[in-house]
Amino acid sequence: SSCPGKSSWPHLVGVGGSVAKAIIERQNPNVKAVILEEGTPVTKDFRCNRVRIWVNKRGLVVSPPRIG
């Protein structure tokens, strides 16, 4: 992607959502990480300053967080 800084975090799958949020925002200060339960409807727009963290009912990351 053409967004500045780190853009994906595949190693965070299985980690707690709040831990993942802290790591992502520390590694790329340009983004705001948002924790969402899988299945939550979201907009389809692409934004360089957003990372969606998809978690299951136990709050664990279920897919690699990435910019968008």
Results as ranks from 00 to 15, higher is better:
S1P: 05
S1Q: 10
S1R: 08
S1K: 14
S1I: 14
S1C: 11
S2C: 14
S2K: 11
S2Y: 15
S2W: 11
S2L: 12
S2T: 14
C3K: 14
C3N: 15
C3P: 15
C3Q: 13
C3H: 15
C3G: 11
C3S: 14
C3I: 15
C3V: 15
C3Y: 15
P4R: 11
G5A: 15
G5V: 15
G5D: 14
G5L: 14
G5E: 15
G5I: 14
G5T: 15
K6T: 15
K6W: 12
S7M: 13
S7N: 12
S7T: 14
S7Q: 13
S7H: 12
S7I: 08
S8T: 15
S8A: 15
S8R: 10
S8E: 14
S8F: 13
S8P: 08
S8I: 15
W9Q: 03
W9T: 03
W9G: 02
W9E: 04
W9M: 06
W9Y: 09
W9N: 04
P10T: 08
P10H: 02
P10C: 03
P10Y: 05
H11F: 13
H11G: 12
H11A: 12
L12Y: 03
L12F: 05
L12R: 01
L12S: 02
V13S: 02
V13W: 02
G14F: 00
G14A: 02
G14D: 00
G14N: 04
G14R: 01
G14E: 00
G14L: 01
G14T: 02
V15W: 08
V15A: 09
V15H: 11
V15C: 10
G16L: 12
G16M: 14
G16P: 12
G16K: 10
G16T: 14
G16Y: 14
G17R: 01
G17V: 03
G17I: 00
G17S: 04
G17D: 01
S18I: 08
S18D: 13
S18E: 14
S18G: 12
S18W: 11
S18H: 15
S18V: 13
S18R: 13
V19I: 13
V19D: 11
V19K: 11
V19M: 14
V19F: 12
V19L: 10
V19N: 08
V19C: 04
V19E: 15
A20K: 01
A20D: 00
A20T: 02
A20I: 00
A20E: 02
A20V: 05
A20S: 02
K21H: 01
K21N: 04
K21M: 04
K21V: 04
K21L: 04
A22Q: 10
A22N: 13
I23K: 05
I23H: 08
I23V: 12
I23E: 09
I24F: 00
I24G: 00
I24M: 00
I24K: 00
E25D: 00
E25K: 00
E25N: 00
E25T: 03
R26T: 09
R26H: 06
R26C: 08
R26K: 14
R26F: 09
Q27C: 06
Q27M: 09
Q27N: 13
Q27S: 11
Q27Y: 09
N28F: 08
N28Y: 10
N28A: 07
N28I: 07
N28K: 05
P29N: 06
P29K: 10
P29L: 05
P29G: 06
P29D: 07
P29C: 05
N30S: 12
N30H: 15
N30W: 11
N30I: 07
V31S: 02
V31R: 02
V31N: 04
V31Q: 05
V31G: 03
V31Y: 13
K32C: 08
K32V: 11
K32A: 05
K32Q: 10
K32D: 07
K32F: 07
K32Y: 06
A33G: 11
A33P: 04
A33H: 01
A33R: 02
A33E: 00
A33S: 04
V34L: 07
V34A: 07
I35M: 05
I35N: 11
I35L: 07
I35F: 08
L36D: 00
E37Q: 14
E38P: 06
E38M: 09
E38H: 09
E38Q: 12
E38N: 04
G39H: 05
G39S: 04
G39N: 09
G39C: 03
G39F: 04
G39T: 02
T40S: 09
T40G: 04
T40W: 04
T40L: 06
T40Q: 10
P41L: 09
P41F: 08
V42F: 05
V42G: 04
V42E: 08
V42S: 08
V42K: 05
V42Y: 07
T43H: 09
T43N: 09
T43S: 14
T43E: 14
T43D: 12
T43V: 11
K44H: 11
K44T: 12
K44M: 08
K44W: 05
K44F: 06
K44D: 12
K44N: 08
D45Q: 09
D45Y: 06
D45F: 03
F46Q: 10
F46K: 09
F46E: 14
F46D: 10
F46M: 11
F46Y: 13
R47Y: 14
R47N: 10
R47F: 10
R47A: 15
R47D: 15
C48D: 13
C48S: 13
C48A: 14
C48F: 11
C48P: 13
C48W: 10
C48I: 09
N49D: 15
N49W: 03
N49L: 03
N49P: 05
N49Q: 06
R50W: 12
R50A: 13
R50L: 13
R50T: 15
R50F: 09
V51F: 00
R52S: 07
R52T: 12
I53V: 09
I53G: 02
I53N: 02
I53L: 05
I53E: 02
I53Q: 01
W54L: 06
W54K: 02
W54V: 09
W54S: 04
W54E: 07
V55P: 01
V55K: 00
V55A: 01
N56E: 04
K57C: 05
K57P: 06
K57H: 05
K57E: 13
K57V: 03
K57M: 03
R58E: 10
R58D: 13
R58V: 10
R58M: 12
R58S: 13
R58P: 03
R58L: 12
R58H: 11
G59A: 02
G59Y: 01
G59S: 04
L60K: 08
L60P: 00
L60R: 10
L60W: 06
L60G: 05
V61S: 02
V62R: 03
V62D: 04
V62Y: 00
V62T: 12
V62M: 09
S63A: 11
S63D: 09
S63V: 11
S63I: 09
S63L: 10
P64A: 09
P64I: 08
P64R: 02
P65H: 00
P65T: 03
P65R: 01
P65S: 00
R66M: 11
R66S: 11
R66D: 05
R66N: 07
I67Q: 09
I67P: 04
I67E: 06
G68L: 06
G68D: 12
G68N: 08
G68F: 04
G68T: 08
